[in-house]
Every structure is written in structure tokens, then in C-alpha cells.
Amino acid sequence: MKAVLGDHTLVALSKALDALSLRHEVIADNIANVNTPGFKARRVRFEDQLKAAISRGDPGSCRPVIEEDRLAARRDGNSVDIDLEMARLAETTIMYSAISRLVSDRFSLLKYVISEGRR
């Protein structure tokens, strides 16, 4: 029998929250360095890794990857595209909210079962 609080759904969701938080950190770093010459924007990829980890049956083994965007779009060698960063920032915040709601719902479900269907 699987552990009630350590089941795959909760582990996968918390891994996604961790990765989104890391992604937000990297976006904040990109935005802070929007005027730093030679700075290369960085991206966090975790979706494919999480998918692979879930299909292996061990979502806890998901490791997000940080990649550098090596294309210099500007003459000062900086590759930060501020519009792209703001869009990704909004996306990351919304995804984080959505997944944290899923975690909450998961706990509500457990609570419902624990209280034998009574409120």
C-alpha cells in the first residue's frame, strides 16, 4: 500500500512547485540583469524531466535543468528579452497558483476521507 501523504501525485505536484519557484528565481535574475553587458538569459526546463520521472514511477527523481540562452540579441552581448521575461513571469505565477490549488484540493480530499465524508 502506498503512503497516504507521500503518494506520487503529491510528490509530483511538489516537484513542479519547486521547479516553478526555481524558474521564477531565474527569471528574476534575468530581469535584474536586463542592463548588464554580456549577460546571458537563462531558462529552467523541467516539464520533460518530470514527465520522464513520473513514467519511471519515481517523480521525486525529477531534476530541473538550467540552460543559457546563448544568442546575443543586442550589441552589448546581453540576451535578455524583457517582454519575453515578463510573459514568462506571468505564466510562471499563474502555473504556480494553479498547482498550489491542486495540492490544496488533494489535501481537501484526504481530509474528506479522514472525516468519513462528514464536513
Binding site: 526555481l22 528565481e25 531565474v26 528574476a28 535574475d29 535584474a32 540583469n33 537563462r42 535543468v65 538550467i66 540552460e67 543559457e68 546563448r70
Partner: peptide, 9 residues
């Protein structure tokens, strides 16, 4: 092109 630790600002 991969580095593990995020920057610090």
C-alpha cells in the same frame, strides 16, 4: 551551456 545554480542578481 548548462549551469546548475541560478544567479544571484
Amino acid at each position: 551551456g548548462v549551469s546548475e545554480a541560478p544567479g544571484r542578481g
